[in-house]
Design a protein around this nucleic acid. Structure first.
Lengths: 227, 227
DNA sequence: GACGTCCTTGACGCAACCCTGATGCCCCGC
DNA sequence: GCGGGGCATCAGGGTTGCGTCAAGGACGTC
C-alpha cells in the first residue's frame, strides 16, 4: 500500500486530504508542523509527501531541504502563494511538483499518482532483485531470505539494514549513511546499533558468524556486503 | 549536456523556449507536430520532453502514450486548457508535470530542472570512478583497492591520504595541504605523520616499497601520486 | 492482563589503529 | 671530510572502536 505523509497546518485541508486519500486506499500519516513532519518521515518512510509551505514552526523550504538530506521521496508542494519566485525556490530545493491553492482534488490526486509512478522501480524489470551468495539467497522485492532450504526470519530493522547493504553490494557503506538510512536522519553516531544488528545479521546468515565472509567490517569507516 | 525535446505548434512559443534553453546550455531539439516529435524522441533520446497538447496532427495524450510505450523520459506538458479533466488525463497517461499557458519562463525552467533531477541515476547506481596503475586498482567510491587479484585493506587514515593524493593525480600536493586535509585544519607541521603513513601506503601498494613508482616524495615540498 | 517480539542500552574483553620516539640513511652545504 | 636536515623504517604504548552478551522497556497480540 502506498504511504502518504500530509503536512499542513490548516485542519480542514488536512482533513479533506486524509479522507480522500484513505478512500482511495492510501495509507496516510499527517503532521501540522515541520518538526513533526521530518520526524514522521524518518519514522514511517512514506512513498510520497504532500507539503504545505506555510507552516507555523519553520519555512517549508527548510522542510524540503531536511528531507532531501537523506531521501529522494517525491515531495508535492502545496501553497497559497502564486509567485514565480516561491515556486522556483521550492522546486530547486528539491520539490517534485508545486500546486497552488485553491486546488482541485482530482488534479492533486493525479499529480500524486504521477509522482508515485515515477518513483517506482524502473519498469524495465531487468534489475535482479535476487542476490545469491555461497551461503544464502536474498530476494529484496519479496522480502525473503533463503538459507539451507529454509526461510530465514528477519526483523524490520534487520531487513532495512540488509536492504541498504545489498543494494550497495561490493561498496563500502559508511556508518553514518547506514544509521541515517535505517534509523533516520537524526542519527549518525550511534554505532552501537550497527554493532548489535550486524551481529544479528551475521548470526542469521553467515556460516561462521565470528568469521564473516559477506558482512565485512571496515574499522572506523563502515560495512560492506560481498557476495 | 542535457538534451531537451520541445514540441509545440506555435512558432513563437517554440522560439522563446529554444532561446531560453540554449542560453542555459541545454541541447535542444524542436518539433511542431506529434509524428515528428515521436520520431525525434526515438532518434535523439532526449533527457526531458516539453510537450504542448494542442498539436495539429494528433492528440497530445496519444503522443504521451506513444512515448511511454518504450521510454520513461520525463514529460512536461504544456497546455492552454485549464480544465481539471485534461490535466488528469494527461498525467495518468504518463506525463510528469502539467503547466498551463500562459506560463512564467522561470517556473517552467524550474519544473524542467526538477524533472531532470528526478531522472538522474539513483543513489544505488554503479557510476564508480576507478583509477588504475600498473600494480593496483583504486575505486574511490566503493573504497576498494585491488592488487594481484586480492583486495587490500586500508585503515581510515590511509584511505583519507590516498583519497587526497589520487584526486590530485600527477600534481604535487604540499605537506601542509595533506596534513590539513587528512588530520584537520589545526595541523600543518607534523610531517612525521606523513612519513609514517606514506610508508604504510607504499608497503601495501607498491611493488617495491623502498623504490616507489607511484607515491613519489618531493623533498621539502610534499608528495605526488603518479599512475 | 500475560506473553512474546523487537528495539534500545550498558558493560566487558579484545583487537586494531594512531601516535610517538628512536635509529639509520641519503643528500646537500659547509 | 664533516655535519645537519629531511626522510624511511621499526617497534612500543595508549586510545579508540568492535564484537558479544544480557537486561530493561516499548509495543502489539491473544
Amino acid at each position: 500500500m502506498t504511504r502518504v505523509l500530509v503536512v499542513d497546518d490548516e485542519p480542514q485541508i488536512t482533513r479533506a486530504l486524509v479522507i480522500n486519500l484513505k478512500a482511495r486506499k492510501y495509507d496516510v500519516d499527517a503532521a501540522s508542523d515541520g518538526a513533526t513532519a521530518l520526524q514522521l518521515a524518518a519514522a514511517r518512510h512514506p512513498d510520497v509527501v504532500v507539503l504545505d509551505l506555510g507552516l507555523p514552526d519553520m519555512d517549508g523550504v527548510e522542510v524540503i531541504k531536511g528531507l532531501r538530506g537523506w531521501t529522494r521521496v517525491p515531495i508535492l508542494v502545496l501553497s497559497a502563494r502564486h509567485s514565480s519566485d516561491e515556486k522556483v525556490e521550492a522546486l530547486d530545493a528539491g520539490a517534485d511538483d508545486y500546486v497552488t491553492k485553491p486546488f482541485g482534488m482530482d488534479e492533486l490526486l493525479a499529480r500524486l499518482r504521477a509522482a508515485v509512478r515515477r518513483a517506482e522501480p524502473t519498469g524495465g524489470g531487468e534489475d535482479d532483485v535476487i542476490v545469491e551468495t555461497a551461503g544464502f539467497t536474498v530476494d529484496l522485492a519479496a522480502k525473503k531470505v533463503h538459507r539451507d532450504g529454509r526461510d530465514v526470519r528477519l526483523t524490520p530493522t534487520e531487513w532495512h539494514l540488509l536492504d541498504v547493504l545489498v543494494r550497495n553490494t561490493g561498496r563500502l557503506v559508511g556508518q553514518k549513511q547506514l544509521l541515517q538510512e535505517v534509523w533516520g536522519p537524526s542519527y549518525g553516531t550511534e554505532t552501537n546499533y550497527l554493532r548489535v544488528y550486524m551481529a544479528q545479521l551475521r548470526r542469521k546468515l553467515e556460516v561462521d558468524p565470528s568469521h564473516p565472509k559477506h558482512f565485512i567490517t571496515e574499522p572506523g569507516m563502515g560495512y560492506r556486503f560481498e557476495r
